[in-house]
């Protein structure tokens, strides 16, 4: 349910996927479907399970051909995938907290571009939501200096917690290609849409979508692919204004028929 592309709730990714579909994104259910050519960007958003070694091998070949892979995950489990791709980036699943926050909540960390990476071009900052932090690679977005890993979970800067910048998006060259790791898939959930001055999170998403001529989305292991049948029915009712209006009209219709009937009888 969480991160599901069919989930129009705040914790789904229906809006992101709507945009992806509008941009004719290619959905792949396994890395063997990846095209050659070296002009593509593969987005792996919130993987739900780990990848098998042969899959990692396929992905590495894809990456080394000169494509871009954007891995969005806050789980340390993905370090296996990252190291399998030959990158030095590591995800650290800590409780990254910052004074520079968007919402009055310790998890709502703001991150700012660092370095000259094209991915961060023109985006002043992004709003994270319970991010992990990254080690290694070339930092693309980092939290501000007033950030710390909240080890004791009290949301406050403790004595043993030091202030420092943490990298939340990092890039690493692998062969001809570039691997980006984003340490928080929650930045793309529906609830994070239309947040900030210019909706920077979705600006970043658009930047990712249009970075390469071909945009591919992994849908085999990603939690975004999760789709129970029930949710589609609920979507139909909940997601469309027309349905709601129809229901309301129907109610009024039934009500007025009832009243008119009564009135006539009288």
């Amino acid at each position: 349910m969480e991160y599901s592309r069919y989930n129009p709730e705040w914790n789904g990714t229906s809006r992101l996927f709507q945009e992806m579909i509008e941009r004719d994104a290619m959905m792949v259910s396994g890395f063997h479907e990846l095209p050659g050519g070296g002009d593509a960007l593969l987005l792996i958003l919130a993987p739900g399970e780990s990848y098998a070694p042969d899959e990692i091998g396929l992905l590495r070949t894809f990456l080394e051909e000169g494509n871009i892979v954007v891995l969005v995950s806050d789980k340390e489990r993905e370090n296996l995938l990252i190291s399998g791709l030959g990158s030095s980036i590591r995800i650290r699943d800590g409780n990254l907290t910052s004074i520079d926050r968007f919402f009055d909540h310790p998890s709502s960390v703001l991150a700012f571009p660092a370095g000259q990476d094209p991915l961060g071009a023109g985006i002043s900052r992004i709003v994270l939501n319970n991010p992990s932090s990254l080690e290694g690679g070339e930092p693309v977005f980092t939290s501000s200096l007033l950030s710390w890993i909240d080890a004791d979970g009290d949301s406050r800067l403790g004595r043993d917690e030091t202030l420092q910048r943490f990298s939340v998006i990092a890039a690493d060259r692998v062969g001809e290609g570039v691997l980006y790791v984003i340490a928080d898939p929650s930045i793309f959930i529906n609830g994070m849409d239309a947040i900030g001055m210019d909706n920077e999170n979705y600006a970043l998403a658009r930047q990712i979508m249009s970075a390469r001529p071909r945009f591919i989305v992994e849908q085999g292991r990603s939690r975004t692919a999760y789709a129970p049948e029930a949710i589609r029915v609920v979507n139909l009712v909940k997601d469309s204004t027309i349905t709601k209006m129809a229901v309301i009209t129907l109610i009024f219709l039934v009500g007025s028929i009832f009243v008119i009937g009564r009135w006539k009888e009288a």
Partner: peptide
């Protein structure tokens, strides 16, 4: 939104209040 504050991965932005943004910028 408040009864659904989110899980380990994220918290619901709708349940959160906007932080006063300039205060951190004052620190340095």
């Amino acid at each position: 939104p408040r009864s659904d504050p989110g899980g380990a991965d994220h918290s619901n932005p709708a349940a959160l209040e906007r932080a006063r943004e300039d205060r951190a910028a004052q620190v340095l």
